[in-house]
Amino acid sequence: MTDQRLYFMLQRAAHQVRVAADRRCLGAAGITSAQLGALFAVREQPGITQQELAHTLGQRESAITSMVTRLVDAGLITKRAHPRQYRAIALDLTSSGKQALDRVRPAIDQFNDEMRAAIGTEAFAATTEALARLDRWFTGKIAG
């Protein structure tokens, strides 16, 4: 029963965190937390392909295609032909995309500070590491 409760609590917490983060991101910069993740990835890896972005975010390519379309329509990223991959599209952050990241940073920093205060600094660090290990484990299981 405890194992099933852990799964339930992870699902519930993930939902609550996503909703709260979306509210803050939308209020600060007019983007969702999922879009924020995509903008961070594009900023960190200029010219990233949609396939690479999907892998980075752990999403299906079809979901990323829709998100990229919304981000292009919003003027936050641009698409261009990839210089080395014939059919791939490279993504880059626009100046508006950079500004959106700058606007949302204080809200995300405050949100992380509030979560750290709610569960304690040590628990926050331990939880972050445990979730990262679970992610690596599942990624390895899927890839292997």
Rank of each mutant, 00 (worst) to 15 (best):
R18N: 01
P106W: 05
R60N: 14
G97T: 08
R136L: 10
A29M: 07
P106V: 06
R136P: 05
A81D: 07
R18T: 15
G37T: 01
Q85W: 10
T94W: 07
T69L: 14
T69N: 15
H55N: 10
L39T: 00
A81F: 05
V104H: 07
M67P: 07
A143N: 13
I64E: 12
A14Q: 03
R18M: 10
I64T: 15
R84P: 00
V42W: 01
S96H: 14
F8G: 01
R24L: 13
T78A: 10
F138L: 15
R70I: 05
I48R: 04
E44V: 02
Q110K: 11
D109S: 09
R70K: 14
R5A: 10
L39P: 02
T49Q: 12
T69E: 14
V42Y: 00
F111D: 08
L53D: 09
R136W: 09
M67S: 13
R70P: 04
T121W: 05
R70Q: 13
N112P: 00
G140H: 10
Y86T: 11
V42G: 00
T128Q: 12
M1C: 04
K141W: 09
E61V: 14
A28T: 01
A88D: 12
A118M: 11
A29Y: 02
I142N: 10
L6H: 03
D3H: 01
L10P: 00
C25D: 06
Y86N: 13
R84T: 12
Y86W: 13
A100I: 05
L134C: 09
H82V: 06
F138E: 12
A63C: 10
D73C: 05
G37V: 01
A54S: 11
D92F: 14
P106G: 02
G58R: 02
R24P: 00
F138N: 11
